[in-house]
Design a binder for these strands. Structure first.
Lengths: 194, 194
DNA sequence: GTCTATAGGGAGATAGAC
DNA sequence: GTCTATCTCCCTATAGAC
């Protein structure tokens, strides 16, 4: 994974994406100007415009790779015939994606500007595809709610400052266990609700 | 609850807050200009400035009541001696708050601009107070992750379009059950993880 | 790859008439 | 309570020198 700091000897294009990701996470996409990105890099706005034609292009470059990966995960669902393995592999893939791109996942899920851009991306349908794998066919209300909580909960846990003391591996394991627990029907009495 | 539409005979101040909430939810706070708020109301910017001195004042007026309610819920924790009732009442209160102010809850939790404002509000400490009630003292990693997923999952479920067919009461019940299930240790074997 | 300079527009905010 | 008009500043984006 080479060098990942803000070292000045890295390609200018990557330094833009790094500064942009930091700022998008802190201030949101709309709250981030090209001037802020340039300031954080220690260059001028024009230098940033040399790498990307528009601000929107920067947003796409920042979130694109993660969306591509999401698309791969969703496509792999159809390639696995066994239901149990399909479920496990997809959940593990999603959690891995979220842990690898913690802040990015939060931006894609919660930033209104990014959400609008994602609507035009092929990965858009993947969200529904994955969710329907998690709920199963013809889900009841309880299952729908559990799936919604998982989809938000995984992202939030990825960026929660209260969890910084956990290693990536610990976090991965707990997320997997907790999500699995949620997406299976409770082992209590069949239906004591009311 | 009187009339809740965008009827022109309601006080101008409330019509501003209504339009602002709509736009904050759709575009984020930074992505919303006073011009947009004015346009949605069918008036000019100056008319909006007659009601609120700054944009920040509008944000405070929009999120303030929900933060006050959160503060009340957190304060009630210390007034209830029985642990079981304390836990149940707080969770029910939070869920009720989220359902009543669905979009507002998402804004407070996820909008970077609002998050910065909330840091200076008395309710800021309430988030930690409530979370530590949910985790209990000296929580392990699994419990921390579960609490993080609940805190994000409740909000996300509140605004998830996949759940629109559920009534408020259905949603409330499922959220309560699911959150309770998450915040209690799993009833399976003590520790078969690997 | 980076710079200075600038165009053109929209932002937040204010003054004062009706 | 709403309007027109205006100020100042910062935004995205472009042109062209080094």
């Amino acid at each position: 994974m080479a060098q990942r700091g803000s070292r000045p000897d890295r390609p200018a294009r990557e330094r833009v994406l790094e500064a942009a990701l930091d700022l998008f996470a802190e201030q949101g996409v709309s709250g981030t100007s090209l001037q802020m990105i340039a300031d954080r890099m220690g260059v001028t706005k024009a230098a940033v415009y040399h790498q990307f034609r528009t601000k929107e292009d920067i947003v796409f470059a920042v979130v694109g790779p993660a969306l591509d990966r999401l698309l791969e995960i969703a496509d792999a669902i159809d390639a696995e015939p066994d239901h149990q393995r399909r479920f496990t592999a997809t959940l593990a893939g999603i959690i891995d994606l979220i842990i690898t791109h913690r802040r990015l996942a939060a931006i894609v899920q919660f930033d209104p500007m990014v959400a609008r851009l994602v609507r035009g991306h092929p990965a858009h349908a993947s969200f529904e595809r994955i969710r329907s794998l998690f709920t199963g066919p013809d889900p009841d209300g309880s299952t729908l709610v559990a799936a919604a909580m998982v989809s938000g909960g995984l992202i939030v846990a990825g960026v929660d400052p209260a969890l910084v003391r956990l290693s990536d591996d610990e976090l991965r394991e707990h997320l997997f266990d907790t999500a699995t627990r949620l997406l299976r029907p409770p082992p209590g009495p069949p239906s004591a609700a009311g």
